[in-house]
Structures are given as structure tokens and as C-alpha cells.
């Protein structure tokens, strides 16, 4: 999962997509996660770090993480792969 080049993320959680002109806002954990994703970190590593830091169980975090990723994809913040390319 890659963040597209046109995305600018401010430290206050404001996200601007210069390709589409859309803007977004992130809550603090959303901001933290998007930065990790931008750094190309693996889900397993992100998860173990988050479980260490926050009071949360692994399944709830996994569910929330993938919902967040689906939204990033929906908003064209991450690169789109062909959804019918079943690899």
C-alpha cells in the first residue's frame, strides 16, 4: 500500500490531495497511522507497536486498521490496484 505522491499531510491532520483538489481531516490516531503507512511500514510491525502503545486488543485494531485503509483507498489517498486482479 503506497500513499500517492500528490498527497500533502500537515502536522495538524489536514490532508490535501493536489491531484483531485480534495481535502480531508485526520484524527490523531489516523494521522499517526498514515505516517507509518507513508514510511512503508508493514502491518505486522504497525500492529505490534500500536498494541504496545495503546490500550486495545489485536482484533479490534485489525478491524479498525483495515476499515481505515479502505477509506484511504476510497478517497484515492493510496494507490489503486485493480480490484479484480486476484493475486
Amino acid at each position: 500500500m503506497k500513499i500517492t505522491e500528490e498527497i500533502k499531510i500537515s502536522d495538524n491532520g489536514f490532508v490535501f490531495n493536489s491531484k483531485t483538489g480534495d481535502s480531508f481531516n485526520l484524527n490523531p490516531l489516523g494521522l499517526e497511522l498514515i505516517k507509518q503507512i507513508a514510511n512503508d511500514k508493514d502491518f505486522d510491525i504497525i500492529r505490534s507497536e500500536m498494541l504496545e502503545k495503546y490500550d486495545i486488543d489485536d482484533l479490534t485494531f485489525e478491524k479498525d486498521f483495515y476499515e481505515f485503509c479502505a477509506l484511504l483507498k476510497h478517497h484515492q489517498i493510496t494507490l489503486q490496484d485493480d480490484p479484480l486482479n486476484f493475486v
Binding site: D22, N25, N27, D64
Partner: peptide, 16 residues
Amino acid sequence: EKLKYEKPIISKITAG
């Protein structure tokens, strides 16, 4: 002590 968890959220800002 662990920090309070809040679900990660991104929402679109609707202009105008």
C-alpha cells in the same frame, strides 16, 4: 501505562 485508544478516522472536508 497504555494510552487511551481512539479508532483512526479520516473524513473528507466538504467545501462550501
